[in-house]
Amino acid sequence: MIGIIGIVVVLGMVFGGYLAAGGKMGIILKSLPFEMMMIGGAAAGAFILSNDTASMKQTFKGIGRVFKGPKWRSDDYRDLLCLLFELIRLAKSAPLELETHIENPEESAIFARYPKIKGDHEAVEMICDTLRSASMNYDDPHQVEEVLEKRLDAHFHHSMHPSHALQTVADGLPALGIVAAVLGVIKTMGSIDQPPEVLGKLIGGALVGTFLGVFLAYGFVGPFAAKLKTVAEEDGHFYQLIREVLVANLHNHSPNICIEVGRQNTPHHYRPRFNDLEEALKGARAA
Rank of each mutant, 00 (worst) to 15 (best):
K227Y: 01
H157F: 13
L152N: 11
I27M: 05
L152F: 08
V214K: 01
V208T: 04
R271A: 09
M37G: 15
R271V: 05
C82W: 01
S191A: 15
F111R: 04
G41V: 06
H269R: 12
D139M: 15
P195K: 08
R243E: 02
M160Q: 14
F238S: 03
P33A: 11
D276C: 01
A226G: 02
L250T: 11
Q143H: 09
D153S: 12
A287R: 00
E197V: 15
P196G: 06
W72A: 08
N104G: 00
E244K: 05
C128A: 09
N275C: 00
I2G: 06
R263L: 14
L250M: 15
L281H: 10
E103F: 08
M25H: 08
N249K: 10
A123M: 01
I259A: 12
T266P: 13
G204T: 08
L246T: 13
I2W: 09
G45M: 09
K282L: 14
N51V: 07
T59W: 12
G262S: 02
Q167R: 15
V185N: 10
M56I: 15
R113A: 00
G12Y: 07
H157I: 14
A91S: 13
P195V: 06
S93C: 00
P223Y: 03
K227A: 06
S135P: 00
Q194I: 05
G17E: 03
H269K: 12
I2E: 08
A154R: 02
N265F: 15
K116A: 12
A94Y: 06
L199A: 11
F211M: 08
G62C: 10
G119D: 04
A44R: 01
G177P: 13
E234S: 15
R73D: 10
E197Y: 12
L80V: 01
A134C: 07
L11F: 15
T210C: 08
V10Y: 10
G172V: 10
G26P: 12
G213N: 11
E233D: 09
M1H: 13
H237K: 08
S133L: 15
A20I: 10
K30Y: 00
L199Y: 11
L90P: 07
E145G: 13
I88R: 05
E35C: 06
G45D: 06
H161Q: 15
L241W: 00
I48G: 02
R151S: 14
R271H: 06
E146K: 08
L216G: 04
I186K: 03
G190N: 06
I257P: 01
I257H: 13
R132D: 01
L19D: 00
A217R: 00
P267K: 07
H251N: 09
T266V: 13
A54K: 13
G41N: 04
K116G: 05
D79W: 02
C82A: 08
I259F: 12
H268M: 12
S135E: 06
F85W: 04
L87V: 08
G219M: 11
H269Y: 11
V198L: 06
E233G: 01
V144L: 07
K68P: 11
Q264K: 15
V231K: 05
L81T: 03
F15G: 01
E149F: 14
L166F: 13
H237A: 12
R132Y: 03
M136T: 08
T230N: 03
R285T: 05
S254C: 10
D79L: 02
N137A: 14
L281Q: 09
H269N: 12
M37F: 14
P255V: 14
D120C: 09
A248M: 02
F34C: 04
T168P: 09
N265W: 10
